[in-house]
Design a protein around this nucleic acid. Sequence first.
DNA 1: GGCTGACATTGACAGCTGTCAATAGGAGAG
DNA 2: CTCTCCTATTGACAGCTGTCAATGTCAGCC
Lengths: 124, 124
Amino acid sequence: MVVTGSTSTDDRRTGGDRAAGDGDGCAASLVSAPLSEAEAVALARVLAALADPVRLRLISIVSSVGEVCSCDLEGPLARSQPTVSHHTKVLVEAGILVGEKRGRWTWWRLAPGCLAEVRRALGG
Amino acid sequence: MVVTGSTSTDDRRTGGDRAAGDGDGCAASLVSAPLSEAEAVALARVLAALADPVRLRLISIVSSVGEVCSCDLEGPLARSQPTVSHHTKVLVEAGILVGEKRGRWTWWRLAPGCLAEVRRALGG
DNA sequence: GGCTGACATTGACAGCTGTCAATAGGAGAG
DNA sequence: CTCTCCTATTGACAGCTGTCAATGTCAGCC
């Protein structure tokens, strides 16, 4: 079972560019023209999910390894198990992380294309 | 370094001190290898400054116009003058915005290269 | 000098956020 | 079924954040 934030589409490593979070936002670039209120709210939601040192390190760990289960995060992040679970949930709801339950473990990997979408919204 | 860094351009800024992500931080990419604690804190600080709808719209306005004074922000942002002043201060302390006092007005523009640095840290 | 206009600062308040202890849920092993 | 392990949820708490009214500060104009 794949646990995603919004739609539960089982995208098994499809290269499609999916928008983060709600899907509508993140389409406009920050530097081209003034953002609408809705665009700003949508982009701010993803950035807020990224704006935490623990979550940034979590993302970097997942990114470097490719796939990680929660028990492998608790140690490197130096946070309790509920706190790690909380951070993974925040990242999933922001569309940044994707979790898949296999047996008793939950394996986490990055949502493909999400960070690239954020970079593009920031003027890339 | 993600802050202004006093490049060769005459980006003089008067008033206020900024000490955001100085030092080593913001130099590593999120996706290449696990971030250190200091790198994560520094990057999170800049991202937290970006993670607000009002500030994102403020940045987009400044970016599209090139240079604006505070009185031109109060209306489009639909916020009171102290609130606008608060947001500009947060962005300056994060090294994203640069303010220059000319006469009675303060003119704001984007710190050159800062957003590009953030994009790069996000894996660009 | 006093006045006016443009920002900055302070104080207060509600709402959000990161953290952990305690607890619950659920899958595999025996 | 029971027991154990991994993960998710709940409850509580401290700290941070966005907002505005009130006030302060400083430069230019009379």
